[in-house]
Design a protein around this nucleic acid. Structure first.
Lengths: 186, 186
DNA sequence: TAGCTTTGTGACTGATTAGTCAGTTTTTAG
DNA sequence: CTAAAAACTGACTAATCAGTCACAAAGCTA
């Protein structure tokens, strides 16, 4: 039984439920059936735990992206990435919410720029490649990335609050809209 | 000197800088040059203050939207709304960030659904009108709204981190992309 | 088994915090 | 000007919380 993982999982859940403030370290330890002091053996401070949860979730997401890399065209790769992200988010709502909460909190400033780049660069490079090979409109890659990321986010939000909707269909439609928006028209 | 407004402004700034947890009520009072107890005369609890800040900012945003309502076509109105929102966000970064932080925190659950609807409905109705008059693609209005909102958000994020870029040009370009995405093609 | 290292424990503490309240100042009204 | 009401004050408190530490249990090695 990996206590570190257990603590991270428990913290994740409680932080999303009650916020960083609303979650005492003692509560996390108790919920994880671990002694108070044990938590501080794995994480020197509460802040360190908050960051560890973020890194863990982001790494899991990154792993999913690697799997989305197909040998096919850029369109196919982007579509797979889009679909996988949305499906993953729907299956991992709490993790998705945690990342959101973390990103829009002041804790984000504690993450080194290089660490953040690690997660963004693969996407950015794919988009750059698409621009260079005339598949994607000749705009700033960072801008295209933002639009792509936020379209993804928007669809996830929509499906969170409209769960009965045909998810596959929505994902298919919205990707097509997105692709038509950023693709280079002949 | 309106102490309520002063406290809300100060709280806004400190909450974005240090988070809800990281900001003691005493710090807010001190920074606002007001006695500790005075804060609790205007807001019964810290939570009430956190919510008051949210409502205040959202109302300000809503006021801006009303001004965006032109007598022109739906396209023009949507474009004005898009532009005004982005420009407002750039000028009011802290307020924009506060809303983000609040939305992705558990405090959002304390806001009544009717209150949230109040902010969304005007947009939703405009989109519905666009769909009915065959200007906008025949998709769920809530979905179009999400895509619209998130495109806006994406552009703001992009311009936050790329401030040297030609803002007007970026706004113009991205609105065109967005409009092409949601408009009904003949 | 004995001796050593690693891991876990939970009572405890110093610091901090939201919220109170008895008293003071300011404003309002006649 | 006076008296009552309203707004303001800041020292205080009860509660909470992050982090510590002396000790105990479990695991490892030979």
């Amino acid at each position: 039984m990996d206590k570190r993982k257990l603590l991270i999982d428990t913290a994740l859940k409680l932080f999303v439920e009650n916020g960083f403030h609303g979650t005492a370290t003692a509560k996390i330890a108790k919920e994880a059936n671990v002694a108070n002091g044990t938590l501080f053996q794995y994480f020197k401070t509460k802040e360190e735990l908050i960051i560890a949860v973020f890194i863990t979730v982001k790494s899991e997401m990154a792993g999913m992206f690697i799997k989305s890399q197909t040998e096919k065209s850029i369109t196919d790769t982007l579509k797979t990435q889009f679909t996988n992200t949305v499906v993953w988010a729907l299956k991992n709502r709490v993790k998705f919410q945690y990342v959101q909460q973390f990103y829009s909190s002041p804790y984000i400033h504690l993450i080194k720029q290089t660490e953040l780049k690690k997660y963004i660069d693969p996407h950015l490079n794919l988009i750059k490649e698409g621009i260079e090979t005339n598949k994607i409109k000749d705009l700033d890659a960072a801008l295209i990335y933002q639009l792509f990321a936020n379209q993804t986010f928007g669809v996830v939000q929509y499906l969170f609050s409209n769960q009965k909707k045909k998810q596959t269909e929505v994902i298919e439609t919205t990707f097509q809209l997105l692709w038509d928006m950023i693709k280079k028209s002949k």
